[in-house]
Design a protein around this nucleic acid. Structure first.
Length: 675
RNA sequence: GACCCUGUAGCUCAGUAGGAUAGAGCACCUGCCUCCUAAGCAGGGGGUCGACGGUUCGAAUCCGCCCAGGGUCGCCA
């Protein structure tokens, strides 16, 4: 349809008001609460008030203007609303034939002027993806697909934070295992996650023991127990601290840390006893001082000159990343480019940036540390004014007191060339909400560097984190749920259905893969990213609770009608290819409601992009499927005797298929003909 | 203390450029497979939209003030 009927009517109202009252007002419309009130309605209150006319009078004159439109069946004036009923056959004729003939329904050029970078996932390469950062993957993927559907050029990037301090012990642990010919007993990133938890715990134990020794001067560390807290260790430390001369606050902190470490150690030695003990023994045997070795690794990798260490780091992070990629691909989530934080650190850009900032009045020195006075930048360069920020903005720490540049420096450099490389006019960073102030800091730093042009193109698309029912996620204690886990749990559920069906093993496996992926992905995608979610594994893998399988099932039902119709020798291809000649005949509400929804799809895409709410796509898909299932139950296609009605229904089914294919593409889920 | 987000049915969540009787799914009851796959459909119960004020023809939606939960706030990312 070249112009939406609603817009056309709104236009008529607008013209009428302008002609008679010389006023230009925005016309709003909405869906009546019940379909027997009409298909669309225009509230007249504000219009009447605006032009100083009685609602009845303006309503009547608009009614007579509108009711002679071809697409309009009748107009009713009720309770201050102008209610429009469309001519169902006329409206459906336009919609169905347009959709059926479309190469890809919903594909548009609305955003074709945009070149969009979407950065998402960007999880630290020291363990598996868990549902927290996977939420970002899902949201980012939907956004990317949405922009593509709307004609934008899209570049999806993954920022690999391989410089994190906590990665060094993992590299060391991984090397120890490799040297001793211990092979992974599970998916590589999961295995790395275990090493991460273990090595960082060992490191912490060593460090706290050292600290207590220095501070109290009395504690003696048994060399064999450098990396372990025994129950009597714990008692000794507690007694020592209580009787020591240290101030209360220090005592309290040290005590708390000791307790925490003891419980983490306990958790690990019960969850992964073999690996934990093995790594502890290897560390004791082969690493004299884990703490200083870690420091050496961190420093060397930041410099990037020690080939040996660089290659060890690269091997480990590459492996972890390969696990992420494998996981993501199960859910049809792909990246175009991977950028390593270390590459940026080695490039010299950070130095340049710091030098440039050094010349500005906003850089504050504090010993060797460098801080950016963000509040002053935001005021002086009118950032506050532009984005309506009224509160104070905290400083951004660029360099720590040891003179080491921190993460934001690299992120500033990254943004500078990321946008230029792709010639992007929009950059959406899908990053957890915790980084809100950090991300703002980076944009302000760009302002300070006279690159407000770049900063203004960056959007921090923040999403809330995921918590587990009854517990917190904690990588260090191996307390997390992975998308891989959900995927296999969902698969078990799917097989419960499939085992009652007479499909081949190959078919079953294919169906199980697609349904499980959709189930997990949709269960995450359907929630507003702004909402912190309490994640319940049982619910997430309950197929009745989730809309993913429901969407897929609706599609198979639609497809099946077409397949069956062909078997019954109904000339489907012919009807579809020559749909112009079909005389549309709508006889049931279920047909009509479905068609109205199909017509809305392009608008839904537009709105999802404008409001940056990819979750609305899921809700719309669900509504559409619901309407289709009602149609399915009430409107037989193949056995329908009236030829016009039958052909109309075939076009309705085909349009539904087209709409769902489009939606599935945006959601990144595969479709099935059988399930 | 400052800032951001959230609070809607027993549970999980939609609905916010102000609109008519606040909606789904799950769970709980009741029906429907001689009929295109029942992973479906039909029906039922269940709500002071966190509280109180304000703005107006009209508020879950906008404003103010509270309350509760989560997050961030100088060297981790």
């Amino acid at each position: 349809m070249s112009e939406k009927p609603v817009d056309k009517i709104a236009g008529i109202i607008n013209d009428h008001i302008f002609e008679n009252y010389k006023k230009n007002i925005t016309i709003i419309w909405n869906k009546p609460p019940s379909s027997n009130l009409g298909d669309v309605s225009f509230p007249l209150f504000s219009i009447a008030k605006n032009v100083g006319e009685k609602i009845e009078v303006i309503g009547q004159s608009l009614k007579s203007k509108i009711e002679n439109q071809e697409v309009v069946e009748k107009v009713e004036l009720k309770g201050g609303f102008l209610n429009i009923f469309f001519n169902r056959n006329y409206f459906s004729d336009k919609v169905l034939k347009n959709v059926v003939k479309a190469e890809k329904y919903g594909k548009s050029t609305v955003e074709s002027s945009k070149r969009v970078i979407i950065e998402h996932t960007s999880s630290n390469p020291n363990g598996p993806l868990h549902i927290g950062n996977f939420r970002g993957s899902v949201v980012g993927d939907l956004l990317a697909r949405l922009y593509k559907m709307s004609g934008a050029a899209v570049n999806v990037r993954y920022y690999v934070n391989d410089l994190g301090r906590q990665i060094a012990p993992v590299v060391i642990g991984y090397k120890l295992l490799k040297k001793n010919n211990i092979a992974p007993d599970t998916k590589i990133d999961l295995w790395i996650g275990k090493i991460y938890a273990t090595m960082n715990t060992l490191l912490d134990i060593q460090e706290i023991k050292k600290e207590i020794q220095t501070k109290t001067g009395k504690y003696h560390i048994n060399d064999d127990l450098k990396y372990k807290i025994e129950p009597n260790d714990k008692e000794e430390i507690e007694n020592l601290l209580m009787s020591s001369e240290l101030d209360e606050k220090t005592k309290e902190i040290l005590l708390k840390r000791t307790k925490k470490l003891f419980s983490v150690q306990k958790a690990l030695s019960s969850k992964i006893p073999d690996l934990f003990n093995l790594l502890r023994k290897l560390t004791e045997k082969e690493v004299s001082d884990l703490s200083s070795l870690t420091q050496e690794y961190i420093e060397e990798y930041l410099k990037g000159e020690n080939k040996q260490i660089v290659s060890e780091y690269r091997e480990l992070t590459e492996k972890a990343l390969s696990g992420h990629i494998e996981t993501l691909s199960r859910f049809n989530i792909f990246h175009d480019d991977f950028d390593r934080e270390s590459d940026i650190a080695w490039s010299g850009e950070v130095k340049e940036i710091l030098q440039k900032l050094e010349t500005k009045q906003w850089l504050r020195h504090d010993g060797r540390a460098r801080l950016l006075k963000n509040d002053e930048i935001a005021t002086a360069l009118r950032y506050k004014e532009k984005y309506n920020i009224k509160h104070e903005i905290p400083d951004l720490i660029l360099v720590n007191s040891e003179g080491i540049p921190l993460y934001p420096c690299r992120d500033i450099a990254y943004h500078l060339h990321k946008l230029e490389k792709f010639n992007a006019n929009l950059c959406i960073n899908v990053i957890g909400k915790q980084q809100q102030s950090l991300q703002l800091g980076v944009r302000l730093a760009l302002y300070a560097l006279n690159r407000s042009d770049i900063a203004d193109k960056i959007i921090h698309f923040d999403y809330e984190y995921v918590t587990l029912v009854g517990r917190k996620m904690a990588g260090r204690e191996l307390e997390y749920v992975t998308p891989d886990e959900l995927y296999s749990l969902a698969k078990e559920e799917v097989y419960k259905f499939l085992n009652e069906r007479d499909y081949s093993e190959e078919e079953k496996s294919n169906i199980a893969n697609i349904v499980s992926a959709a189930s997990v992905k949709i269960s995450i995608a359907k929630i507003d990213p702004n909402k912190a979610v309490m994640f319940d594994v049982k619910k997430a893998t309950d197929l009745n609770e989730n809309s993913g399988p429901f969407l897929l099932y609706s599609f198979t039902r639609a497809k099946n009608i077409i397949i069956k119709a062909k078997e019954e020798s109904i000339p489907i291809e012919d009807i579809i290819n020559n749909c112009e000649t079909v005389e549309i005949s709508i006889v049931k509400d279920e047909e009509w409601n479905l068609i109205k929804l199909i017509e809305e799809l392009p608008m839904i895409y537009k709105r999802a992009i404008n409001t940056k709410r990819p979750d609305t796509i899921v809700n719309f898909s669900f509504e559409l499927c619901k309407a289709f299932n009602k149609f399915y139950d009430n409107c037989p296609v193949i056995s329908e005797n009236d030829e016009k009605v039958r052909k109309t229904r075939i076009l309705i089914v085909q349009s539904t298929i087209k709409a769902l294919e489009s939606l599935f593409e945006v959601l990144g889920i595969d479709s099935l003909e059988k399930m």
